[in-house]
Write a protein that binds this DNA or RNA. Structure first.
Length: 421
DNA sequence: TCTGGGGTCCTAGGACCC
DNA sequence: TCTGGGGTCCTAGGACCC
């Protein structure tokens, strides 16, 4: 059986850990640049605050209902997430960290239904006792069903945070009442297409012929249908698979109208992406850059381009050079840019790469330099060592705005909470 | 005054070449 | 002179997830 453990309103719950005075009160967390509402806790949902609504549009409504507003504090959420994942790993070594707030656990032993419920609730209690993180647990034969069980656990208070789907037939009346777009992998577009063939509920999808679904919708949805019927098609990935493409993109705090600042930001995202690339021991063979004005403007300018690299590499310096030259190519004067992004494509594994005589030595030198930079930044904090192309951190005018950010309680020495007696 | 997230994978369709 | 199949490469954008 698989258990899916998912934190309840993760970011909002992270903020409450060090602000117990906010328990039971409505909280929203905003996306980067304080753009949209990305997390609402139960109390905020009850007030009818919609998800992904731009903050500026509902600011007055939030104030009226005294909703507590936070900017994203990824240092805090990342650190809390690591602690939760460590705790979950103590239940079983077979764990797949699926996202910052979710993990699949393989439950190897054969437990009966009531034992499985107890197992789920033990996990839930441990997360609350040890980390003050509320979670729900969904347990079932397949990953798709355990996602669904988790969804049901979140909706039904009667289940007390743990839902077990063991005999699928018994759940069919419930499945007939849940809309098909709640299934993992079925988004709004697929749901629309499914409606045309009268597939509206999860039960409707479960009862489809997998072969016919494959012809009309592709292999991904065929797997979903099989998984809903208890057939395992998606396996547990305990070792994260190396990504085939890596991206880093951000919106600006203030619009940017000149090439110098655009280049600086592109260099920074290229460095971030390169760091991710080295962490997964890969090399890139193609660099991609996109620059965009606001997509809500009438004359929306949106260009992207990519170039192949002469040799596969993970050297920030080579990647930054390629990225800034691309930025230069696609830049047009007279626009207010809102967002840029850097992508690394055509990735290969660095451990298996064969270098020729000419590049071998160069690669060794590059590996040493990047290793030292990564170590220093790891030890003394990000951006202690940076490339000139990235600009001086304090002077980066394009940096994003985070007006309601909470302290980095767990990762910065000056931000550690003090208890006064 | 103005404000609208980020990452990954995939595909359609155009441009170009043989 | 004009036509046309088939492959590769590239960009734009769709779809889904969190």
């Amino acid at each position: 059986m698989y258990a899916l453990v998912d934190c309840n309103s993760c970011y909002a719950s992270c903020e409450q850990i060090f602000r117990p005075d906010l328990r039971g009160k409505p909280i929203v967390v905003l996306s980067n640049n304080d753009g949209c509402v990305v997390t609402r806790n139960r109390e905020a949902k009850a007030l009818g605050i919609p998800e992904f609504e731009p903050y500026f549009k509902i600011k007055s409504r939030l104030q009226k209902h005294q909703v507590h507003v936070f900017s994203s504090n990824y240092e805090l959420y990342g650190d809390v997430s690591n602690r939760i994942m460590l705790l979950l790993a103590s239940f079983t070594p077979a764990i797949e960290i699926y996202s910052i707030d979710e993990a699949f656990l393989d439950i190897p032993i054969t437990l009966n239904k009531s034992e499985l419920i107890t197992y789920g609730q033990t996990i839930k209690q441990a997360c609350w006792r040890q980390q003050r993180m509320p979670v729900c647990v969904g347990i079932a034969q397949t990953k798709t069903l355990s996602k669904l069980a988790n969804h049901i656990a979140k909706k039904s208070h009667r289940l007390n945070g743990a839902c077990v789907i063991d005999i699928i037939d018994q759940w069919k009346p419930v499945f007939s009442k849940i809309s098909v777009n709640k299934v993992w992998g079925v988004g709004s577009k697929t749901a629309q297409k499914l409606k045309l063939i009268n597939v509206v509920s999860i039960l409707d999808l479960l009862e489809q012929n997998p072969k016919k679904i494959r012809n009309k919708f592709g292999i991904t949805l065929e797997r979903t249908v099989r998984e809903l019927n208890g057939e395992r098609c998606i396996s547990l990935e305990t070792q994260p698979k190396p990504k085939q493409e890596i991206y880093c993109s951000r919106s600006f705090g203030h619009k940017v109208n000149n090439l110098r600042q655009l280049n600086e930001s592109v260099a920074n995202y290229a460095v971030r992406a390169s760091k991710k690339l080295r962490r997964q021991h890969s090399l890139t063979q193609r660099v991609y850059v996109t620059i965009q004005t606001s997509r809500f403007n009438e004359d929306h300018y949106n260009r992207s381009s990519s170039i192949p690299l002469p040799h596969p590499t993970n050297d920030s310096r080579t990647i930054v050079k390629a990225a800034t030259s691309l930025c230069h190519q696609i830049y047009r004067e007279g626009y207010l840019y809102a967002r840029v992004g850097v992508g690394l494509l055509d990735l290969t594994e660095s451990t298996h790469h064969q270098y020729d005589l000419l590049t071998q030595e160069q690669h060794q030198a590059s590996k040493l330099v990047m290793g030292v930079i990564d170590q220093i930044n790891q030890k003394y904090g990000d951006n202690q060592v940076f490339l000139a192309a990235q600009g001086i951190p304090r002077k980066r005018q394009w940096n994003m705005s985070r007006d309601f950010k909470s302290p980095a309680y767990t990762t910065r020495i000056n931000d550690i909470p003090v208890v006064k007696i």
